[in-house]
Amino acid sequence: MMQTLLVASRKGLFVVRGQGTQWAVVAHHFAGDPVTQVLADPRDGHWYAALRMGHFGVKLRKSTDQGATWADITAPAFPPKPKEGPLATDPTPWNVDLVWALTPGSATQPGTLWAGCMPAGLFKSEDGGHSWALNTALWEHPLRPGWFGGGNDYPGMHSVLVDPRNAQHISVAISCGGVWQTHDGGDHWALTAAGMTADYLPADSAEDQNTQDPHRMVQCTAQPDVLWVQHHCGIYRSTDGGQHWARIAAPAPSEFGFAVACDPHDPQRAWFVPAKADTHRYAVDGKMVVNRTDDGGKTFKTFGAGLPQSHAYHLVYRHSLELAPDRNTLAMSSTTGGLWVSADAGEHWHGVSQDLPPIAALGWVA
């Protein structure tokens, strides 16, 4: 069955279609413009693309006809910084530099979208992205000043998860600001990174929940209490809705990485892409592999068939490992323009292209 993949890159949005080992780029939108995030909303089929246009600001574009036409819509934006009060001296700029996450709301909330940004603000739209409101409860939380940037100047929110059982339950992950959850639609928030350890901090503050660096967080749709995190310092899994996290003994060749994908129906299965830490940030020994667990992290299998196995200096970013709706097809991309697809749950890979621009995010069309 033909499948469609959206590829957000530094030089535009590519549409890739195919099946098995037959894939091709069929369209190129916003040529030359940096696209940081993409969403194909499974509820109504609408496509969204977030662009990072430098001094022109962040732009958001929407297509209701699968890319045949695009319309500019309002992008998330902070309100003016207060001139008085405790926030007047906030060192974080109140300007959206990057839309890092685009997440559809619950199936019971048509038109609701969530956007995680850098700096780490959370925005909500209730009209299909035509207007946005900052979640002030999290932005004004007294612990926010303790957040800091990982590889960036400022903290960023890259993972936003909506509990399929309860549209009011939202979980977010921040680099570096830990994991936060709300059970009332965003009015109140709790820090829930217990069990995570930041090896990059002094020993007496390594377990501070507010300064953890989860690189990516995903959730099992069928059993939403099961969440996975690829952390700066290892792999974590929670089976109680993120209240507590257990560190998993990571497989060779490295516990460092950015990407994680999980099976929406099997809480035991997840995929990770290891990389060489910390300043290197490319495949360990120049050899690309993907690790999969089928038993909740107790054991892993390592796959490299079809992937470059020598002098491969690819890095797979947070949103560059995505499982298709069929639960067997995986797509993976890199910061050096590589794009691969696996039709058998990651065991064998087919190279679609080595020549695309640096890729920031992937999104399957349902």
Rank of each mutant, 00 (worst) to 15 (best):
A137P: 13
D187V: 08
Q19Y: 11
N152C: 06
H319W: 08
Q268G: 07
P79R: 02
N95G: 02
G186Y: 01
L13I: 14
T89I: 10
F56V: 13
S131K: 10
P253F: 03
Q37M: 13
P110L: 09
H319R: 13
W228R: 13
A77C: 02
V99W: 03
L362R: 04
A331S: 09
G111H: 05
A194H: 03
P80I: 01
R318Q: 10
F256W: 05
A115D: 14
G195D: 06
V290P: 00
D44C: 15
Q22K: 09
C176H: 01
F78A: 07
D355P: 04
T239H: 09
A173I: 07
V26M: 05
H350T: 14
W100I: 15
Q223L: 12
H141F: 00
D163M: 15
A77W: 01
L13P: 03
H46E: 07
Y48K: 05
V290I: 11
R17M: 14
L51D: 04
T74N: 10
Q219K: 07
R281A: 03
F258H: 10
L113C: 15
S238T: 12
C262F: 00
I359D: 01
T329A: 11
L87S: 05
G18I: 09
H158G: 12
S125C: 12
A343L: 14
Y236I: 13
A277Q: 06
V341L: 14
H350D: 00
T302Y: 00
S131V: 12
L356N: 05
P253I: 02
Q168E: 15
T64D: 09
A343I: 10
V26L: 05
P145G: 05
D44S: 15
L60W: 02
G150T: 12
T4I: 03
E207G: 06
L102A: 14
M217D: 03
R43T: 15
Q230F: 08
P76A: 09
V341T: 10
F78L: 07
Q22C: 10
S63H: 08
H231T: 03
K301V: 11
T302Q: 11
H55S: 08
V99D: 11
P224M: 09
A206V: 02
V260H: 03
C233G: 06
V218C: 11
G242R: 11
H319G: 08
A222V: 13
H350Y: 04
S333Q: 01
H141Q: 07
F258A: 08
G337L: 09
W94H: 10
S131M: 12
N291E: 09
E255D: 12
N291C: 15
G286L: 00
T136D: 01
T89N: 08
N210D: 05
A31V: 14
D41E: 13
S342M: 06
W189M: 03
A324D: 02
A8Q: 07
G234C: 14
A49W: 05
L60G: 13
A173L: 06
A270N: 06
C262G: 01
L330K: 07
T279S: 01
N210S: 08
M118Y: 03
L315S: 04
A71S: 10
P325M: 07
T299L: 10
D90S: 11
D72R: 05
L161I: 13
G286R: 00
W228I: 11
A137G: 03
P91K: 05
L122C: 15
S254C: 11
S63W: 03
R237M: 14
P142L: 14
A193T: 02
E126W: 03
